[in-house]
Simulated assay, not measured.
Amino acid sequence: MMPRLLTYGIALVWLANGLLCKALGLVPRHAAIVARILGPAHAPVLTRLIGLGEIGIALWVLSGWKPRWCAAVQIGLILSMNTLEAWLAPDLLLWGRANALFAALFCLLIYYFTFRAARPSPR
């Protein structure tokens, strides 16, 4: 039961950020961050494309296909996105540079859930 809840929870984070915050534009701060990092000229389109990518990650998580690759991609994306945001747009982050703490905790959850908890116990 717990692995299924964690899977849904992780997918929900990606879905909420991708669909609500970026694709539908309900949180303008996300578009402002994209504009700051990638430039304002194409920020609306790029924000929606990033949102679609995040929706794709949510679907990948739910599919269960190649879970270790999925986890590695998630961790890489989370760490790279949060590093860029903390460096180039800390004033636009919800918790400023403290966002890095939440990102690191989320990465640890994904890592543990995928690489540690999922291992079969030795006999």
Rank of each mutant, 00 (worst) to 15 (best):
A104I: 15
S80C: 13
L62F: 05
T83P: 03
I50N: 09
N82F: 10
W60L: 13
L109N: 08
L52G: 15
L49H: 05
C70K: 02
Q74R: 02
I37V: 13
F102E: 01
Y8M: 10
A23F: 09
I57N: 05
V45Y: 07
L15P: 07
V27F: 14
A103I: 01
G39D: 01
A35H: 00
A71F: 03
L84Y: 03
V45T: 11
A71M: 04
W14L: 03
G39Q: 00
R68E: 11
S121G: 07
G53D: 03
S121T: 14
L101E: 02
P67M: 04
L109T: 14
L52S: 05
A11V: 05
L84T: 01
L59S: 03
A89R: 11
L49C: 12
A117Q: 13
N99K: 07
I110H: 09
L92Q: 10
L20K: 04
R48M: 09
V27E: 13
L62T: 04
L38D: 04
G51A: 08
A16Q: 06
Y111I: 08
F102A: 12
V27K: 13
C107D: 02
L15F: 14
G53C: 06
V27T: 12
R123Q: 12
P90Q: 08
G25T: 12
V13W: 03
A98P: 02
I10L: 13
L62R: 04
A71P: 09
A118T: 04
G56L: 02
W14K: 00
H42V: 00
L49R: 03
I57A: 15
L105R: 13
N82H: 15
R48P: 00
A58G: 11
A89G: 03
S121N: 07
L94M: 14
R123F: 07
V61W: 11
M2K: 06
Y111C: 06
P40R: 00
L24W: 14
W14P: 10
P28D: 05
V45L: 15
G56H: 11
H42G: 01
L12G: 07
A31M: 14
L38P: 00
L109Y: 07
